[in-house]
């Protein structure tokens, strides 16, 4: 029995469950309405064929949306007791958490999919530079992954989904806005908080520049959050 088979079992189940309940469709609809409205309400005013505004909005929208997507992943299982079944099946914890994480990231990717039509639409209107658009989507996936991991951590600390959502949202909003909230700090310290914050790194990638420092930031955030989730679950044993 190889680990990857179990991982894909967990992934398939979690991913399917998103689309069994109406929550998925509601979340995707709200996401599209919000991004669509915020983006197109100013798009024609600026009269520029680019998606920068769309991507600059994305972190704060993700900070609210992704914790809602991930809140049930562990909390629901703790609450109904089904985690006892999952934890006593011959599955490694790493497969459980990786399966749940990939399901959440895939869900985020699915909800981003319809927004590709914005890019296609704009490319008809004017001369769209595809570099930042591709960078933006890569950044969106990295950011989605990091926020999903944070959301999973929040879900692993409580069996109450509402608390999981609020905790996840607070961490994600903080990561998004920290450098803007602390604008009064001296330059040297601001740099540090900028590095901690997710928005700065995301905007770098969205500009079409793939820097290893930004990649490293997102990947370490994912690892730290998932490891935190692992510790939170271990603590309950």
């Amino acid at each position: 029995m190889l680990g990857t088979e179990n991982l894909s079992c967990i992934f398939k189940r979690e991913f399917k469950v998103y689309f069994i309940s109406p929550i998925a469709y509601v979340v995707i609809a709200v996401f599209l309405v919000l991004t669509g409205w915020f983006f197109f309400s100013t798009f024609f005013l600026y009269n520029q064929a680019q998606m920068r505004d769309f991507f600059s909005l994305l972190p704060i929208i993700f900070a609210f949306m992704i914790p809602a997507v991930t809140m049930r992943l562990f909390s629901e299982e703790f609450n109904t007791g089904s985690y006892e079944i999952l934890a006593t099946l011959p599955v490694r914890f790493i497969d459980i958490i990786a399966g749940k994480f990939l399901a959440a990231v895939s869900f985020v990717a699915i909800s981003l999919l319809p927004t590709l039509s914005y890019a296609v639409f704009i490319s008809f209107l004017g001369d769209l530079d595809w570099g930042p658009v591709i960078g933006g989507y890569i950044g969106a996936l990295l950011l989605g992954g990091a926020f999903s991991a944070v959301g999973i951590f929040a879900s692993a600390i409580t069996k109450n989904q509402i608390i999981a959502f609020i905790a996840g949202m607070i961490i994600c909003v903080t990561l998004t806005l920290i450098d803007k909230l602390l604008f009064f700090l001296p330059e040297s310290m601001l740099g540090f908080f900028q590095y901690i914050g997710a928005d700065h790194h995301f905007q770098n990638v969205a500009r079409g520049i793939l820097d290893s420092r930004d990649l490293l930031y997102f990947i370490s955030l994912i690892f730290i959050a998932l490891f935190g989730a692992h510790l939170a679950v271990e603590e309950k044993k």
């Binding site: 079992c9 089904s82 079944i85 006593t88």
Partner: peptide
């Protein structure tokens, strides 16, 4: 093979799907 108290199985699945899921995990 373990049956926890009051069988807290996934409520949102169909019995057949659930058993297939468990059988997949058991390889």
């Amino acid at each position: 093979g373990y049956l926890p108290e009051s069988a807290p199985i996934y409520q949102d699945m169909i019995v057949y799907d659930y058993l297939v899921y468990i059988s997949e995990i058991h390889g």
